[in-house]
Design a protein around this nucleic acid. Sequence first.
DNA 1: AATGCATGCGGCC
DNA 2: TGGCCGCCCTGCAT
Length: 552
Amino acid sequence: MAPQTRRTTSFPRVIIDNDTDSEHSSSEEEEEEQVEEEEDVAVRNNGMEPEQSLDPKNKGKAPICISLKKVCKVCKKAGHEAGFKGATYIDCPMKPCFLCKMPGHTTMSCPHRIATEFGVIPASHKCSSNQLFYVFERQLGHTRSQVKPVRIIPDQVCCAVIRYHSRRVTTLEFHPTNNNILLSGDKKGQVGVWDFGKVYEKIVYGNIHSCIVNNMRFSPANDGTVYAASSDGTISCTDLETGISLSLLNLNPDGWQGPNSWRMLYGMDLNKERNAVLVADNFGYLYSVDIRSNTKTGEAILIHKRGSKVVGLHCNPVQPDLLLSCGNDHYARIWDMRRIEARSSLYELAHKRVVNSAYFSPLSGSKIVTTSQDNRLRVWDSIFGNLDSPSREIVHSHDFNRHLTPFRAEWDPKDPSESLVVIGRYISENYNGAALHPIDFIDISTGQLVAEVIDPNITTISPVNKLHPREDILVTGSSRSLFVWRPKESESVEPKDEGKIVVCGKDMKRGGGHGDESDNSDGDTFSSKKKNSKGKKSNLKSYKSINKKVKR
DNA sequence: AATGCATGCGGCC
DNA sequence: TGGCCGCCCTGCAT
C-alpha cells in the first residue's frame, strides 16, 4: 500500500518520528525497515496541523506520531526503558520504588532490599507494658519460647500435582489428624482432597461451590467434615468421604440480581466454644451460624466499612471470643464476641492500603501479623501492649495484580517462639538466568529473611502457602498446581512414592480416585521411577525437569 | 508468537 | 458518592 493511500484515509495521520543518532529523516524505505526492526514503537500525540484535529472523524484527537525512540513501557517516556532484561526486571525511574512505594529510587537500589534486616521499619515508639501485659506474661508467657529454635526449612519439592485444579488455587488446609491429607480450593469453586503421601490419591469435588472458595476449616467435632466459605455466597459443610455437601448459609437465595446485590463470603473461622462458624461478606457484615442446628444466629453485624469486603476472620487460639477481622477498608479490627455490635471493636489497626490477612499467633495468640497491599507486613508483638502502631513494619513485595490470589503471611504453627512466617513473593528475582518468584520465610521479630525457597520448575507466582501443623512440610498453591516441600534430608515420604509428580489433564472435571500408573483417565501420570510417556507436550517440559530434580 | 481476556482496586473527576 | 479509566513482574487459551 502506498503511503499516499494511507494518508487519504480518515485515520489520524501517522508520522514516523525517527529518533536515531542523526537528527535527519531518512528515506521512507529506510523508515519502514526500521519500523519492522524496532521492538518498541511508541504511539504518542504531538501538536499537528489544526485541520487535522478539526476532522470530525478524528474526534479532536491529535495525529499519532510513531516514535522510534526506545521508550519506557511504564511511563511512555523516552531516555530509559523498563521491563525485563533477561531475568532481571529494570524499574522505571520515573515511578516510585515498586517494592517500598517510596519515590527517589528503584527496586534495585531500594534501602529495604539492601538492608541486612530485610526492610524492617522500627516502630516509632514501643510501649508494651501495661498491667494486662504483666498478667498475660505470667499466665501465658510460658506458652511461647524466647529461644529461637534451629530453623528447618522445607526447601525441596518432594511431590506435586500439576494442573490439579481447573482454575488457580485460592486456599489450602491441612487435615487436623491425618498428616498427609491436603485440602485445596480454587477459583472455580472446586475442592480438592489430596493424599500427598500416596501422591496418586486425589479427588476433586466440583459441585460444592460455583465460584471462588475463599476459606476452609475442618469441623472440630468431626475431622471428616469441612466447612468452606465461597464467593457464591454460601457456607458449605461437606463430608469428605462421600463429597455430599449441605449449605449452612446462602446469602443469595434469589440468585443473580446483578453485581450490586450479589453477596460473597470471604473471611471464615470457627469458634469452637460457641459451636459457631463465623463468616464475613463483601459488604462489611459478619454472620454467625450455629453448627449444631445449622441455623444463623442473630443478625448480621457491620464490622467493616459499609460496602467493603471483609477478607479475613481469625478467632484467637487461646481466647476464641477475641475475633480479628481485616478488610478492604484498610483496617484490621479486634472484637470481643461476647458484646459485638457495629462500631464496638476493641481496637482498630490502621493500614495504608487493603489488608489481605490478619492472624493471631498460633500458640499464645498474643501477637498479630498482617499483610497489606502497601507491601508491608505489620507485626504487633503483644495484643496487651500498645496497639496504636505496629511494633514493626517489614517491607516485602506482595502487592498483587488483579488476577492473583491475595498473598497472606501465615505463621509457622510449630514455631515455639512465634516468629516465623511464610509468604510468597510477587516480585521476581534473577536466579541464574531464570526469573522466579520465591516463597519467603521471614523472622517477624527481626524482619530478617530467613530463607527464600525456589524450584526452577515453579515459574508461576505462589501466593498460597501453608506450613504443616506437625511436620516440616510446606505446601504451595501456584496457579493450578500444588507442591509439597520438605527439608533436603527428609526421608518421610513412602519410599515407593518418593519424588512422584502427578500431572492432571487440563480437561479434568473430577479427579479419578485411585490413579495408578496406568490410569490416564484424568490426565497423564508420571514419576521419577518410570520413563515419561509421550504425553502432552506442553506439560512435558516442566515436569521432566521436576522429575530430574527429585530423582535422588 | 501474538493476542485477548478475566475483572480488583485506586485515583480522578 | 459513583462511575470510569488505567494498571509494572499474570496465566491461560486460542
